[in-house]
Nucleic acid binder design. Structure first.
Lengths: 325, 325
DNA sequence: ACGCTTCCCACAATCGATTGTGGGCTTGAT
DNA sequence: ATCAAGCCCACAATCGATTGTGGGAAGCGT
């Protein structure tokens, strides 16, 4: 029995070039021996691995598991394997992880770690590696991007707060090296100006999308004596951090200060008070990104710089109330 | 220039067999061409990939990201790459994912999906694939296991509740096909008996470690007319589900019923009331498992069936109070 | 100048599966 | 019985890196 023949017998596409009884013999033997075709060797020859890598910045941020789920669903159905790598918000790790995956022969990338200036993405673009961006994008927009309508979401927040009578509104902006940080901040300024609300000193940058950063930002602002009656946070974790910092100083939410979050991760509705926030379709984002990548791997190259912004939904809950006085 | 020579020049171990200037020439050329050694081809020859797979049952369960983090830290430091695969609690997916990873040439597995009877683990054992178990183990105990002292943790819960005057205590047991489900249930019975508390009808099985399952279990028990003043939940998500089901019926926690969770995932302390639960060192579990696997891959085979149970810490918060009446 | 050692490098086999090609056997027709 | 056609299968090259081995060149001593 020649290995070439066995290979054809196991491969549904080449099944026709082998007699039916040989196919049966091979299948029986394969099953008996517990044979599973060595993907490494196959990948070496065919330069396809049926593996897609999903790169996330922080797996403990509850935002990402749902994106993962969405992507996973689609990829597994298509016979692909999803491998996940967490960069822990470290660009160095991102670089080395992506390099490792690339050398390991993954067919494509779904990247959720994009920074505004991202050399790793530039490399992927230069090497023409099939890649799609999810949740965050980079400036040069070299790949299809799947995100949410941040501009609209933030506008909904500001509008809501204004209708409650708030005028001094603070924005906790995410890191300036992320598109979500930048765009939400920009959207905030625009929304404020459009309603003739003051924007001076109203935006404060946070170093990361974490509770610690949110709390630190609020403490800084309070220490500087800037007063506000509402906070539009760049995401949910920042909002939670802000609430903690306020509570620690005896400032009550929503009595004294209203807060809005962003993303509506699973437990936001369970906190007390339940958070007013913006719900984004995380599952769908992941699924769409995966589907597009699969299409690309199947031969239909997407238009470069395509941006898909999914609709958001404003969730009015307990952290926002009519402005005092 | 012969590829063999270039290979030696790039490989620190074989560097001595090549003249220094050749090394420099090769390094320069490699850098110039942006060469990165094809891991697939290397893996084919050396049958080592420096990749470890971590298999989790449900990435949206906040328990797992912290285990991932712990393992990641250790593996990356050692020059390994961690790939994560989520089985979505589906044994079929587990089987195919593990097979895919194995064919893909990963060096070893960290498995967090173990079921009590787990054919996938049996296969791994039969094939002598370096594997360690974390969080859950299987019955046959064919691999080193890193978990927590469930027996002690549950005992702490029961003890705490008894001291608060509770006698009718309900246990929401996790799935019987998981070691954590079984052992916590067994520990619960033992702890109750040791204190001469009634165990009849006091244990109810939940189909999965989810809020939905927890709520459903409580609803079932209530419908059956069994009355209780406290609940020891098999994990945090079950506890949250239980709280929801009770609240929906106007039963207040902790006024009417006390609840304890298990694991102390990050947001338990933020809920209102903050959950009384058992904190387990998730990071350390992941790190230890990874370290042991690395040792195995380095040649020091661990004793089969070694069990490492990490100490737990009881966190008394707001969901437990003195029994009414 | 010759022979010896030492040091580099090139050659080629190897890992396991895929795939284009050619030869051999069977089958059927004349 | 002979030849043509057709179907299977075996052969061998290939993917890219690793690694044992042998040979050639340089250096040194006598």
């Amino acid at each position: 029995m020649h290995p070439g023949t066995a290979s054809r017998a196991l491969n549904p596409n080449a099944r026709g070039e082998v007699s039916r009884q040989t196919v049966r013999r091979v299948e029986r033997a394969a099953h008996l021996l517990g044979y599973l075709p060595n993907t490494v060797a196959r990948g070496l020859r065919t330069s396809r691995s049926l593996v897609v890598a999903l790169v996330v910045p922080d797996i403990t941020n509850p935002l990402f598991p749902y994106i993962v789920r969405g992507a996973e669903q689609v990829l597994v159905e298509a016979g692909y394997t999803l491998v996940l790598t967490d960069t822990n918000n470290d660009p160095g790790r991102e670089r080395s992880q992506v390099a490792a995956m690339r050398a390991g022969g993954v067919d494509g990338f779904i990247v959720a770690t994009a920074r505004w200036q991202d050399p790793v993405l530039d490399e992927l673009a230069a090497a023409a590696v099939p890649t799609v961006l999810v949740n965050r994008r980079n400036q040069s927009c070299s790949f299809p991007y799947f995100g949410t309508d941040d501009r609209h979401g933030i506008d909904l927040c500001v509008d809501h707060l204004k209708q409650l009578g708030h005028r001094s509104i603070l924005h906790l902006a995410g890191p300036a090296d992320t598109s979500t940080g930048r765009e939400r901040a920009s959207a905030f300024r625009q929304a404020m100006r459009a309603r003739r609300l003051p924007t001076a000193r109203a935006v404060v940058n946070c170093s990361s999308f974490t509770e610690q950063a949110g709390a630190a930002a609020v403490n800084t602002v309070l220490a500087q004596g800037f007063s506000f009656t509402a906070i539009v946070a760049g995401n949910d974790l920042l909002a939670i951090g802000a609430l903690e910092a306020l509570t620690a100083r005896g400032i009550e939410c929503p009595r004294d200060v209203s807060i809005t979050g962003y993303n509506d991760v699973d437990f936001m509705r369970r906190l007390t008070p339940a958070f007013t926030t913006v719900r984004v379709p995380l599952n769908k984002m992941g699924a769409l990104a995966a589907r597009t990548l699969l299409g690309w791997l199947g031969g239909t190259e997407p238009e470069l710089g395509a941006k898909v912004l999914l609709p958001v939904e404003f969730m009015h809950r307990g952290t926002t109330a009519r402005a005092a006085r």
